[in-house]
Nucleic acid binder design. Structure first.
Length: 959
DNA sequence: GCGACCTCTTA
DNA sequence: GTAAGAGGTCGCC
């Protein structure tokens, strides 16, 4: 590997990496057949070999603690006193690690009575004088104090990758001028794991503030007159502790160790010995890795290697199959690899490691298609197929920014092809043009997992995906909506096959994640075609099940067509008035600052209001605003809205806290977050609708979530003004269903009293109040209507008297009475509810008007609480789900009309019972009529559906 | 850096 | 009482 001109020394912080390794596997401890927990050894060796492989250091040492720090213990006997017993797995690991290091001929540095930090610090400084650049290999941020122009922190990250901290990184991270100030920072803040006390009441934020203002611990202590209130008292009272903490946090640079260059030189390992130990520990994958890293060939690039850690580049993320969370890491990097070749039978022998088949032990024929003859033959064959599974590989999870890296195709189990694309956009486009006839062929069925993603990516290359679609993720969502639907889970569940992990190829998410572009083409092919192959096999599986569950129609007529609609809406995005939000942010800022001031004054000290824990301590621990404070399940004082609002009328500080919270939330979640989500390539925000998350059949929205933009409060509502039409020629239109869920329950229950109210166009809550409280409609009071409204909604959620009394001013008895009267008023509603529960008990599921099922495994459970929840689900799921079915139908029909009739206007958003459109002004009247008609007639109920339309220059006005 | 917890926003 | 997503803190090392 390349050698830099300057000599490089790597100093490895052994214990820190051992602990890190151990905890990385804490949820999935590595136990070998002898019952030994090898997590710590494995974790440490992974990091060490990774560093060696990446950096090929010529000078290297691993540093250990021995006997703790005499000096620090003398200063402060409690130093590190609160450490838990070292876990057994780590005790067990140490001698092995020593033997492995010995066999690898890696120098070990230990000095009795000193910590590894001090040894490393001393060596780094000495090496610096000798002209070395030193990399301290450690996850421990305390080392930041040692960073200089020649000394860096080198933090390995699991799954590959690392980050280097130099002076600029330390300055940024700790918000200091000089790395030495990190000592002051640590001293002020303290460190619970080392039991360094720090200044009481000073956490990360305050420490940074102090450093900016005073520069050092000493300067702070000399200028306490500039502080005020409680903080002043506390700092002054803890002068000594502050100075002691700083001393404890200081890494010593005068450990009696010498830096003799030759002692640190890296020698070839005693391979046989190393392998012997690895065999004993049953480290198969590590062994493999070690051999590859230390063989002569390892020095040259290795095109055919299947090892994941080869790519060195840092780059953006890759596509992830079903959701933003990468879940394919379960077996990555943990030596669970089976070395068995051959067929699936061998997998059965791999007990203790992995009982599932993998690409390693499954026969497959995956081919990379290169330009030329091969490509021609492939294409001819492709066009002959009736049904093909495909899967795109890209550089990003964000389809708007994703570059195509390759596309995999499969139409026969165990076989498939991969077309890689060059980095050059024009060339990629050219190759794609060759594939256009396939994608745009109406007669070839396209199969995929999460096709919405692939369709969006291809749309950016102006390729439409036509013909019948089969999305395995959607299919499984209908088969079992309560499960997760990412491909790896599906594969393991239905095919008993563990796919190649994406993290093995590109690393875990984070800034060190590599891009699919940097993975070699052989591995790209194996990974991508495997996905297409698996997806194809899943399709065979789900096709049958869809028929059995009788959800075929829902699949063909709702979910699959909707996928295209959502793709279009997401690609379109919505325009945001950034300037407006910026001014809103500034206004909020000043109000928040004022409230902060008030609260500190009322509390008599400063603290973090956003921390429920600190807030609870102040309000209930210190100020004792309440006799018997409510506690959360973790034993903290509860500071939730309903607790606080109860106290608001008596205490100004509570009112201020509530207002502070509201404003802080508004600012961080919406006003500041939304502009940051504007897509640079389009200047608009593009939410991602999740079609397979909500168990009831609703959509969900994320990145950003545009389904929870504030509307209830005046201040919050302002955010909606930031959602504006495309340009001057457009307006926004919002169309929402009026009381759709109540209409659904009225129709499903055939409750005439309620149906008539809807048919007569009555205000349903007032109508309910009139009937329940037995007063004429026009004499219903606000309070009566409000209570009736609460019950109406309560019914939808599966109400109990307890819940109802919590939501209203009514007592438990009054609530019960109200519910009883309610059921007398609407007798069929009660029957309907019990019939739903009975149905669920008998069949194990409930369903919507379109046959969307939700399985309720706890419906016959013996635990009352769990069963109660299942019963409420049995009531709610058909209602919420039917409403979701109806708006989905409406969306599909509206989208088709917009396309067929060549509207300029676009559908932009869905918020459960509302649709939002960018309306080209000349089309306004026509569109209004069309949308209203399609929504109101999407599905025929015995109750009319009613849609309200609003138009305006922004989303708020459109309501 | 990651997950658990708490809180808050919507329909 | 139903269904979601997201931000901040805190404790794990």
């Amino acid at each position: 590997m390349m050698q830099e001109p300057k000599k490089r020394l790597f100093l490895v912080d052994a214990y820190a990496l051992i602990f890190r390794g151990y905890f990385a596997f804490i949820k999935n401890p590595q136990i070998n057949s002898k019952g030994q927990n090898t997590s710590a050894i494995m974790g440490f060796m992974n990091s060490l070999i990774d560093v060696i492989k990446r950096e090929r250091p010529d000078h290297l040492a691993v540093c250990f603690d021995k006997g703790g720090s005499e000096a620090r213990n003398e200063m402060f006997p409690e130093y590190k006193a609160n450490r838990d017993e070292t876990p057994d797995a780590i005790r067990f690991a140490i001698p092995y690690i020593y033997s492995i290091l010995e066999a690898m001929k890696i120098p070990v540095m230990v000095k009795e009575g000193f910590e590894a930090d001090d040894v490393i610090g001393t060596l780094a400084k000495k090496a610096e004088k000798e002209g070395y650049t030193t990399y301290m290999v450690t996850p421990d941020k305390d080392f930041a104090q040692l960073v200089s122009e020649n000394i860096f922190i080198y933090r390995p990250v699991f799954g590959g990758g690392y980050e280097t901290w130099g002076i600029p990184e330390v300055q940024k991270k700790f918000e200091v001028e000089n790395p030495l100030q990190v000592i002051d920072f640590l001293g002020m803040m303290g460190d619970s794991s080392d039991n360094i006390p720090g200044l009481p009441g000073v956490g990360e934020k305050t420490a940074k503030k102090f450093l900016k203002e005073f520069g050092s611990m000493e300067a702070l202590l000399d200028n306490t007159d500039k502080l005020k209130g409680k903080m002043k008292e506390k700092v002054e009272a803890n002068r000594e502790i502050g100075l002691l903490s700083k001393q404890l946090a200081t890494i010593m640079l005068d450990v009696p160790v010498e830096f003799n260059e030759e002692d640190f030189e890296v020698c070839p390992p005693d391979t046989e010995k190393v392998l012997e130990i690895f065999d004993e520990l049953e480290f198969r994958r590590l062994k493999d890795n070690f051999l590859k890293s230390f063989s002569v060939e390892a020095m040259a690039s290795n095109g055919t290697s299947r090892e994941p850690n080869d790519a060195e580049n840092n780059a953006p993320t890759t596509k992830q199959k079903t959701s933003k969370v990468a879940e394919r890491s379960k077996s990555a990097g943990q030596g669970q690899f089976s070395l068995f070749g051959g067929d699936g039978e061998a997998a059965a022998n791999a007990k203790d490691f992995n009982t599932r088949a993998t690409i390693e032990n499954t026969e497959h024929f995956y081919q990379t298609v290169q330009p030329g003859m091969g490509a021609k033959l492939f294409f001819q064959n492709l066009m002959k197929q009736k049904s093909v599974c495909f899967d795109t590989e890209t550089t990003s999870l964000n389809p708007l920014e994703a570059e195509l890296v390759g596309i995999a195709f499969s139409w026969e189990k165990g076989k498939g092809f991969y077309i890689p694309f060059p980095e050059n956009r024009e060339e990629t486009q050219q190759i794609l043009e060759g594939l256009r006839p396939f994608f745009e062929d109406e007669s070839i069925e396209k199969i995929g997992q999460n096709l919405k993603y692939d369709i969006k990516v291809l749309a950016k290359y102006d390729i439409a995906v036509k013909g019948k679609l089969f999305d395995t993720m959607l299919a499984h969502y209908l088969i079992n909506p309560d499960m997760r639907h990412n491909m790896d889970v599906l594969s393991e569940t239905y095919l008993n096959y563990t796919p190649v992990s994406i993290t093995a190829l590109i690393g875990k998410k984070g800034k060190n994640q590599r891009s699919m572009r940097d993975v070699d083409v052989v591995q790209q092919t194996e990974y991508a075609v495997e996905d297409a192959d698996i997806t194809l096999q899943l399709k065979e599986h789900f096709e049958k099940e869809l028929g059995e569950a009788n959800t075929q129609q829902l699949f063909d007529e709702i979910e699959v067509p909707l996928l295209r609609v959502l793709a279009a809406m997401e690609l379109e995005g919505i325009n945001l008035d950034k300037n407006f939000l910026n001014s809103l942010s500034a206004a909020l800022d000043s109000d928040i600052l004022q409230l902060e001031k008030n609260i500190y004054e009322e509390a008599g000290e400063t603290f973090n209001i956003a921390s429920p824990k600190q807030l609870g301590e102040i309000l209930f621990g210190k100020m004792k605003l309440i006799d018997k404070p409510k506690k959360t399940k973790t034993g903290q004082y509860s500071t939730s809205e309903d607790v606080l609002s109860y106290l608001a009328k008596d205490h100004k500080i509570i009112r201020d806290v509530l207002e502070y919270r509201g404003l802080a939330k508004l600012k961080s979640t919406y006003v500041d977050a939304l502009p940051a989500q504007i897509e640079p390539t389009t200047g608009r925000v593009h939410t991602d609708y999740m079609q397979t998350v909500a168990a009831t059949g609703r959509l969900s929205s994320n990145n950003p979530n545009l389904q929870n933009i504030p509307i209830r409060t005046e201040r919050g509502r302002q955010v909606r003004k930031a959602f504006v039409p495309k340009n001057k020629d457009y307006v926004l239109m919002a169309a929402d269903y009026s009381q759709i869920e109540l209409r659904v329950i009225a129709a499903l229950s055939e409750e005439d009293n309620m149906i008539d109210a809807f048919k007569n166009g009555e205000d349903i809550h007032a109508s309910t109040a009139a009937k329940v409280f037995n007063v004429p409609l026009e004499e219903v009071t606000r309070e009566q209507r409000s209570n009736a409204k609460t019950v109406n909604f309560g019914i939808i959620y599966g109400v109990s008297a307890f819940g109802l009394s919590n939501q209203t001013d009514l007592s438990r008895t009054e609530a019960k009475e109200l519910i009883d009267t309610y059921y007398k008023t609407y007798p069929k509603l009660r029957n309907y509810i019990s019939s739903q529960i009975d149905f669920a008990r008998e069949h194990g599921y409930v369903q919507t008007v379109l046959g969307r099922r939700r399985y309720l495994k706890d419906i016959n459970g013996s635990n009352q609480v769990v069963r109660g929840a299942a019963e409420r689900n049995a009531v709610n799921a058909p209602i919420q789900g039917s409403a979701a079915d109806i708006i989905k139908l409406a969306m599909i029909n509206i989208y088709n009309k917009l396309e067929e009739e060549n509207y300029e206007s676009k559908m932009l958003l869905q918020v459960h019972d509302e649709l939002v459109f960018d309306v080209y002004k000349p089309e306004l009247e026509k569109l209004k009529a069309m949308v209203k008609h399609e929504m109101e007639n999407a599905y025929k109920l015995t109750v009319p559906l009613d849609v309200d339309l609003g138009v305006g220059e922004n989303w708020l006005e459109a309501h």
